[in-house]
Design a protein around this nucleic acid. Sequence first.
RNA 1: GGCGGGGUCGCCCAGUGGUAAGGCACGGCUCUGCAAAAGCUGCAUCGUCGGUUCGAUUCCGACCCUCGCCUCCA
Length: 474
Amino acid sequence: MALCLFNSLQRRVEAFTPLFPEADAIGFYCCGPTVYDFGHIGNFRTFVFADLLRRYLEFRGHRVNHVMNITDVEDKIIRQVAATGLSLAEFTGKYTDAFLADLATLSCLKPHHLPKATDYIPQIIDLIERLEKRGIAYRAGDGSVYFSINKYRGCGCRYGQLVTLDPEAQRQTERVSGDSYDKDNLADFALWKARVPGDGVVFWESPWGEGRPGWHIECSAMSMALLGPSFDLHLGGEDLAFPHHEDEIAQSEGTGLQQGGRPFVKHWVHAAHLLVDGKKMSKSLGNFFTVRDLLNKGFQGREIRFLLISAHYRETFNFTLEGLEASRSALARLDSTVAQLTERAGAANPDNTLAPSPFEIAFTEALDDDLNVSKAWAVIFDWVRETNAALATGSLSPIAAAERLHAWRRVDGVMGLGARPQEEAPAEALALLEKRNAAKAARDFAQADAVRNELKAFGWTVEDSKSGSKLKRL
RNA sequence: GGCGGGGUCGCCCAGUGGUAAGGCACGGCUCUGCAAAAGCUGCAUCGUCGGUUCGAUUCCGACCCUCGCCUCCA
């Protein structure tokens, strides 16, 4: 079996095959953040999912060229720059750094490229000029440049590949009321926005005068600059499918740069939203949690990651603090099994030439199925129970333990949970442990229990086993 | 209004035309001085109403509820 993925273009699950089998890497692009504020975990659900897919492609033997853009020029940013008096670079740098730190907290591998829109102005201008030459882009009275959907269609291209559009049936919204658009067609979108007084010092020179790029064209320029005019995978949140991704396709294919009948992107993958109380988590609704919020509540990044990858990427799911606590409990059980396995394995070395275990095979089958993580977790927890049972009966040899550990590490190379950070018990706790051991040896259980209670104050407890008593972090 | 998702155990979330996987929580038992951890074990008939079928949670139809996109958005 091969990896199968849902492709938004076909609206069905299909086998994933590289666009260029001879190339040394798969072109993989994920729309990144707009750096005007801290990201919330709804945003990060998509990025963690992208990380999971990348890791799984690598697990399946592919090399991946992972690109994630940073949108560092946009209306909200410009407003903030004007309000704070900071330079564009200072302002966006702060939130870019925060974003990358959060990504690391969630154990995401760093993308190979993190292009910033403002570093790609020449490429953006070049694309717009190409579109203009082909008659698909036009200048409006105010100096802005728009993309003509009608002209694009006139070239035999299809607008509406990701969504089913019936312009006649679209609800007439009041979206234009606040703006003085000078477009041929209401659905046309901006490629280049002419400078307006509110832009302050944020502008670039262009063949059309001073201005700044439209949002959609940025992703076309960065992705094609780094991955070529046709590449394998493009991901993003489901809200980006329309209009952002649809417009990206139109602009990119409108340039005519693609060769051999290949599309701009072969495989579009969209991640569903995270909900809070049944509603989309968003800045505007105010129902969001940032990674920092959760860290401040005492949760670990890996616990958040576990929750974010506990549900299938194409289904929305409700975020709750209770759910995060449930993730913490589940992860603790997994950690405990891995810790015991590590101890049992000791210095034993597994035979690396061994064929994949049934565990790994089942895990692979689950993720091959459109990244069915729910199924994968079921496989993992079956393995946990079975491993715990073997551990409990003492029937597991060090070499067998080492082999299981090796399998787990391969699986975790995809899930990316890592080991629980080791924490050294403070001297006070160690002293209390000895005190309790002494009391226990003297069969003074009242005293032993009292000491165990005292330990709680330090955030530790004690667990007895046949091999002695151990401190455990609460 | 148009388009696209959902409604499965207390909660989260898989899945299948032949009577439902996993996680969290909960109950019982084993182990333990007591706990904890772990193991064993118990715990759902799948939104409603019709239809197709030997048989539907799984297919079809209607309806109810809910979310998203159509405007910046992961």
